[in-house]
Amino acid sequence: MVVFGWVVLFLVFVDEIAAVTAFGIWGWESSALGVPGWVLVWLLPVLAASTWYWFASPKAPYGGVVVRPVAKVLVFGLATLALWDLDHHSWAVALLVFSVVVNGLAMLPGIRALTADRDSA
């Protein structure tokens, strides 16, 4: 179970990177509000990663039992919408399904205990 747990936690990290990448792709391929794509390609991933750090990460300063799930839904939901907006429908659905599955698995008590043990050490 320990190896499976660490694999799931690694996949959660891959999921976070995929979401940030989706924001970068959307920023590159679109120019929202007249902002050039080269600005959005950096700005959007930084905003997504900052939101994750402040509200959704395991050690988030402003995370909580309500704030953390809301931040996760916003980040993954907007990343999915970004891919959908670019007509990458298959990738959008894949990201959404992958996000739900790996984050759901990460909530299992045995897997959550892995990060709790590491935080107390």
Rank of each mutant, 00 (worst) to 15 (best):
S50N: 09
F23Q: 08
V102L: 00
W28P: 11
V35A: 05
D87I: 09
I17P: 00
W28E: 12
H89T: 04
A79F: 12
S57M: 07
L114M: 11
L11K: 11
W26I: 00
P45A: 10
K72S: 14
T115K: 14
L105K: 05
V97A: 04
G77N: 01
W91T: 07
P36C: 01
V100P: 10
Y62E: 01
D119K: 15
G27I: 01
W84Y: 04
V73Q: 03
F76V: 06
L95E: 10
V14I: 06
L81P: 03
V39H: 09
V3S: 14
P109M: 04
L86D: 08
E29S: 01
S57E: 02
V70L: 12
F55D: 00
L96G: 14
A113Y: 12
L9I: 07
V101M: 03
G63L: 09
Y62W: 03
V8S: 10
A121R: 15
Y62R: 02
A32G: 11
A71W: 07
G110P: 08
L47R: 05
F13Q: 09
L95Q: 09
V66T: 15
A71F: 04
V41E: 01
V39M: 13
F4K: 14
A60T: 02
S57Y: 05
A18N: 08
L83P: 04
G34P: 01
E16M: 15
V35I: 15
T115W: 10
F10T: 04
A56D: 11
W6Y: 13
A49F: 09
V20F: 15
K59C: 07
A19K: 03
L95N: 09
A79K: 09
L11M: 14
L96E: 09
L83E: 07
L33H: 14
L9A: 04
V93I: 06
W54H: 05
A22K: 13
F10H: 01
R118I: 14
G104A: 00
V101D: 02
V12M: 02
I25S: 06
L86N: 10
G27C: 00
W42P: 09
V73P: 07
A18E: 07
P58M: 10
S99N: 06
A113E: 14
A82P: 02
W52P: 08
L33M: 14
V101L: 05
V12G: 02
V3Q: 15
I17V: 13
F55N: 00
L105A: 08
D119V: 14
P109R: 08
W52A: 13
S57D: 02
F23C: 11
V75L: 04
P61I: 04
V97S: 03
W26C: 00
A56T: 12
A116G: 13
S90N: 06
P69T: 04
A19H: 05
S57R: 10
A32P: 13
V73K: 02
L9W: 02
V8T: 13
L86M: 10
T80R: 06
V39Q: 12
V46Y: 12
A106N: 06
S57C: 05
F23Y: 15
S120P: 04
V75Y: 01
M1P: 08
S99P: 03
T21A: 14
W54S: 02
V67A: 04
V20L: 14
R112S: 11
A49K: 10
W42G: 13
I25Y: 13
V101F: 03
A92F: 08
S99A: 07
G34S: 01
